Simulated assay, not measured.
Amino acid sequence: MTEVGGIDDVTVRLPGMRVAYEGDSLNEADLAGTWTEQLQSWLNQAIAAGVAEANAMVLATADAEGRPSSRTVLCKGLDDRGVVFYTNYTSAKSHDLTVTRYASVTFPWYALHRQVTVRGEVEKVDIRETAEYWASRPRGSQLGAWASPQSQVVESRRDLDNALAAIERRFADVEQVPFPPHWGGWRIRPDLVEFWQGQQNRLHDRLRYVRKDDGWRIERVAP
């Protein structure tokens, strides 16, 4: 007998789990003149709808052997140059980006039956922009960036707590904590930005801006 709420019960239910998408259609005439304007519009709508962490995006990278990794990061910059997130430059994601110079991110707005994917080459954000963003971070986040050897193996949680305590002592008398030399931003400079709107019968709308030699073009692709 399958236990209600148990693992076996979840396994049985998974094939039947689905959501009926009944949102507005997405047509070529609905799109803004640029991918930046369209993404900003959808982001604003997600924020207005109360989507938690509306600026969260799933970052996909690959290492030198082509092995993929994905994780969630926060978008902290958006303009015609691309989308920006910040991280430790010694992290696994930064190692991947240094090797391949290419990445993809997806904004998953499940509640709105929408997602946006941005794909392209990457570059490091300059020091001026990094310093400006760093100054906006809470002090605790700044200290955490100094304390964490991101993506490295640690023996225990106590090691992290001890590292943070040491950093707190180091900067106890410093009003403005400087940003670490191993920390900064990555910008994805898109060659493709796809807008996905869920539709009935799984015939979803997928419209994308694609960079060509003569500028940007809009394409519709099958779901």
Results as ranks from 00 to 15, higher is better:
Val19Gln: 06
Asp126Thr: 02
Ile7Gln: 08
Pro68Val: 06
Lys76Ile: 01
Phe107Leu: 12
Tyr133Ser: 04
Thr100Asn: 11
Trp109Ile: 05
Val153Asp: 08
Ala135Leu: 03
Tyr21Asp: 01
Ala103Leu: 03
Thr98Leu: 11
Val221Pro: 01
Leu207Thr: 08
Asp213Val: 10
Ser104Ile: 03
Arg157Gln: 11
Trp186Ser: 05
Asp30Ile: 06
Gly140Met: 12
Arg169Met: 12
Thr117Trp: 01
Pro138Trp: 01
Arg139Tyr: 08
Glu28Ser: 10
Arg71Gly: 06
Ala20Asn: 06
Lys212Met: 15
Glu121Ile: 03
Val154Pro: 02
Ala103Gln: 00
Ile127Glu: 14
Val118His: 05
Gln197Cys: 01
Pro190Val: 07
Ala29Pro: 00
Trp146Met: 09
Ser141Pro: 06
Ala222Asp: 12
Asp126Pro: 00
Leu74Tyr: 01
Ser94Glu: 04
Gly198Ala: 10
Thr61Glu: 08
Val177Ile: 15
Asn44Tyr: 10
Ala29Trp: 01
Arg189Cys: 15
Asp205Trp: 07
Arg114His: 13
Thr11Tyr: 14
Ala46Phe: 03
Thr61Tyr: 06
Glu123Gln: 08
Thr72Glu: 07
Gln150Ala: 04
Thr106Asp: 03
Pro190Asp: 07
Arg157Leu: 09
Ser148Met: 00
Arg157Cys: 02
Leu160Val: 03
Arg114Pro: 12
Arg157Ile: 10
Ser141Ala: 13
Arg128Asp: 13
Asp8Glu: 13
Gln200Trp: 06
Val193Lys: 05
Val154Phe: 02
Asn88Asp: 15
Ala62Arg: 10
Arg137Asn: 04
Tyr89Glu: 03
